[in-house]
């Protein structure tokens, strides 16, 4: 399999065409707006926390490349119903996976927990695309922190973005 097909795994292509987590729900406990300034990818993401700091709901709207969109979709499936602590661990593991530069990921327990998100392993061979895969995870981290802090203020949107 060529590097291109390792990057664009079938699972990634499928998620990018029919992403999970859309549409954006109006109610939220925390909101984040993140952009990728080099290519114009953007996401607005909402999280709702339930008892025990469980991520009761994650929803988002955004546009961008297939990697960013698929990553948001897979992330949504993965973290819904998880506690903030579990989500933070997944986020750290996924970030680590992205920085393996195609050299392999030997944390089997983390790989099991990441599940479908392991399809993004090929992205690590393309340093320019790593931030695409991480866009959604950045938004999740930010929105979750706001929800935890009870900060319901709308996310700041830089001028020129919508």
């Amino acid at each position: 399999m060529g590097a291109l097909d390792q990057l664009y795994q079938q699972l990634i292509l499928e998620h990018s065409k029919a992403p999970h987590g859309k549409p954006l729900k109006a109610d939220y406990g925390g909101e984040s707006f993140q952009v990728n300034t080099t290519c114009g990818d953007q996401v607005r993401l909402h999280v709702t926390l339930g008892p025990g700091d469980v991520l009761e709901d994650v929803s988002w709207e955004g546009s961008g490349c297939s990697i960013s969109q698929a990553s948001l979709s897979v992330m949504t499936d993965l973290v819904r119903g998880k506690t903030l602590e579990e989500a933070a661990t997944l986020s750290a593991d996924f970030t680590e996976l992205m920085h393996t530069r195609g050299q392999g990921f030997d944390d089997d327990a983390a790989a099991d927990a990441l599940g479908d998100a392991m399809a993004f392993e090929g992205v690590s061979q393309f340093p320019m695309r790593v931030k695409c895969a991480l866009l959604g995870w950045m938004a999740l981290k930010d929105a979750a922190a706001k929800a935890k802090a009870g900060d319901h203020t709308p996310a700041q949107i830089p001028e020129g973005w919508e």
């Binding site: 590097a3 291109l4 664009y8 290519c39 961008g64 990697i67 695309r129 695409c132």
Partner: peptide
């Protein structure tokens, strides 16, 4: 197709 994806296919 997002430009990033197009650029990747062309790079290949």
């Amino acid at each position: 197709v997002h430009p990033h994806d197009a650029g990747q296919v062309l790079d290949a």
